[in-house]
Amino acid sequence: MSARRTGFWTIRGSITSRRYWLLAAAGLLLPLAAWTALAASGLVNPVFLPGPLDVLKRLVSWFTDDNLLGDIWISFCRVVAGWALSALIGLPLGLLIGTYRPVQALLEPLTDFIRYMPAVAFVPLVMLWIGIDEGAKIGIIFIGTFFQMVLMVAEDVRRVPMAQIEAAQTMGATRGEIIGQVIIPSARPALVDTLRITMGWAWTYLVVAELVAANSGLGFAIVKAQRFLQTDKIFCGIILIGLIGLAMDQTFRLVHRRAFPWAHARSWT
């Protein structure tokens, strides 16, 4: 690294990884410290703002008495199921929309229209149509992620440079070969990013999904805690969802780096 590119305010400058992690830790710890100080100062009623220690205690009791792992697991399963269902239908559909103009004309305006409808408002309809069992929760997460995902996948596919496709055409590739050997491999890194981002959205719909006659799960625990004014438990649930989301996000990034070294390699040797 040349010295010129490492200044703090250098536009798109580089940074040593030590410094990166120091700053990242500071970014996470400073709000924590502020929270601790505010809670300890006694200025705020602990019903509104429990201290970190209370939250931690609640976390432990949740783990020992209230089956925390079970709640995490069921929520995780619901989120992944809704998201995977979206991906299962969204990936091929987005590929078709991004590849064939008639399919785009047929489906994109419709998808665009639906995605602006609030997923939350579908809750009563979903209960009416699917009922109140697991399917309904997965259905709401699906509605929240699917339409966005389709549009993003279509956009990823459309971003494949025309020159790459035309090069294959001049080499005599068939339509299937162009899709399989050019469009999909070319779009793959962008698609993994799309899956990562939509996974994040799926988690944000968890609480809404577990409003629907659930009796387990992190979202359900938050809603129930609100009824009993257990602010510390609400904090627990929110922070846990955040941490799980962060872990999954980092996993996706790791997979991205491992699977697509060519997309990360800047200069050679």
Binding site: P161, A163, Q164, E166, A167, A168, M171, G172, A173, T174, E177, Q181, V182, P185, S186, R188, F260, W262, A263
Partner: peptide, 25 residues
């Protein structure tokens, strides 16, 4: 082409051998 037509996910050798993936060849 002028540029951007190579396949960035394939190595140099794999790019050159791209036609070997195609039924026409």
């Amino acid at each position: 082409f002028q540029n951007y037509s190579l396949y960035p996910w394939l190595t140099v050798t794999q790019n050159i051998k791209f036609t070997r993936l195609l039924a026409a060849h």
